[in-house]
């Protein structure tokens, strides 16, 4: 599970319709480490929720002193409630897909956008593949860390699988929709 997430480290991501370099580093708590003691590399970080909770002051100070923006990542099991009170602290929120068939992250994204009003970058990480990108974008993701063993340039085509939708989107999306008033 965590390996899949790790593999996206250092690779490019899809954002705003282009493949861009990714400066963010993903922090994971490996076996034998604890959220309190895991090393925090320099630069912009995506930290897991337990690290955010136990080292909030330290993380905010890093941002203030070095200008390194702060992000958090939610595991497939964690809903938006886990960070709902802190959204203003994050420049990026990533949602992990441990398997692409685990659809919980779609609800997490939709709620972050429509219920909690999160307007920053919302990034899909983990088992992120071309054939799910269109739906991911419709629920509010705007950045996609495609699984590292896949061709990210080819995957981008998945965002254009459809040019219309029946449902309203939870974020910017092209094409006419049926149900939007």
């Amino acid at each position: 599970m965590l390996n899949a997430v790790r593999s996206s480290k250092g690779a490019g991501i899809i954002k705003s319709g282009a493949v861009i370099d990714d400066a963010w580093r993903l922090v994971t708590v490996a076996q034998g480490e604890t959220p309190e003691t895991v090393a925090l590399p320099i630069g912009p970080l995506l930290v897991p929720v337990p690290v955010w909770r136990s080292r909030r002051a330290e993380l905010i100070r890093r941002e203030y002193e070095h200008g390194w923006p702060l992000g958090v990542w939610l595991s497939a099991e964690e809903g938006p409630e886990a960070i709902a009170a802190d959204l203003d602290d994050f420049s990026v929120i990533a949602v992990e897909f441990s398997k692409f068939t685990d659809g919980r992250g779609y609800s997490t994204a939709r709620l972050l956008r429509t219920r909690y009003g999160y307007g920053g970058e919302l990034r899909a990480i983990g088992d992120v593949l071309r054939d799910q990108l269109f739906y991911l974008a419709r629920v509010g993701f705007d950045a996609f860390a495609v699984r590292a063993d896949r061709n990210i340039d080819a995957a981008m085509a998945g965002l254009a699988d459809f040019s219309a939708a029946y449902q309203r989107a939870a974020g910017p999306a092209a094409g006419p929709t049926r149900l939007a008033a």
Binding site: F100, G103, Y106, R138, V139, Y166
Partner: peptide, 14 residues
Amino acid sequence: RQWASFHPEFAYLP
């Protein structure tokens, strides 16, 4: 039917 078709949030249910 239309609402359920290609519903992005509910395409990977349990």
